[in-house]
């Protein structure tokens, strides 16, 4: 995957990019996630969402990050897209309309980290029981204890 091509297609929609161990990561503003994913799928052939997950950087700010791992079948390359979210408004548009695979991944991310996905068709807890309180993958959630 060539960074120049990404720059050309995405322009200002991409705020930053870096490469580590041969893996390319691009950073996107949360308001732009849908148009960026649309371009990546339709124009750059990223037709497969390998993985979607959240990361909690507490106590740093912005606190949360949603990470998308994309794979392109026709081109056989991978790309990571990162969106940072503030604690006060930990919500981002759902990409289920672009890749149906995002459905359960986004539910898991909501369940374990409390990040909300706007326009998700069925945003419920997936691994934990419905009456569970809190989001255990958050860094300020204790490792041990009873509920």
């Amino acid at each position: 995957m060539k960074l120049a091509l990404l720059r050309e297609k995405l322009g200002d929609l991409m705020t930053d990019a870096d490469e580590f161990r041969g893996e390319l990561t691009i950073y996107v503003d949360k308001k732009d996630i849908l148009p960026v994913c649309r371009i990546l799928k339709d124009q750059l052939f990223f037709n497969y969402l390998s993985d979607l997950c959240g990361v909690d950087y507490w106590p740093q700010t912005p606190r949360f990050c949603v990470v998308y791992h994309l794979y392109s079948f026709p081109r056989n390359h991978r790309l990571r897209v990162k969106v940072f979210l503030n604690e006060e408004c930990a919500d981002v548009d759902s990409v289920t309309a672009i890749w149906a695979a995002a459905d359960w991944h986004e539910r898991e991310c909501f369940d374990l980290l409390g990040i909300r996905f706007a326009n998700h068709p069925d945003l419920r807890r997936i691994l934990l029981p419905d009456d569970f309180s809190g989001h255990p993958l958050r860094k300020d959630y204790p490792l041990e204890g009873k509920q």
């Binding site: 580590f20 161990r21 893996e23 791992h69």
Partner: peptide
């Protein structure tokens, strides 16, 4: 410091680890 994702062909499909 950094982050990596690596996946293999496990018996059931793409098994990957993402580490920050």
């Amino acid at each position: 410091t950094g982050e990596v994702y690596h996946s293999i062909e496990a018996p059931r499909g793409e098994l990957g680890f993402y580490i920050v």
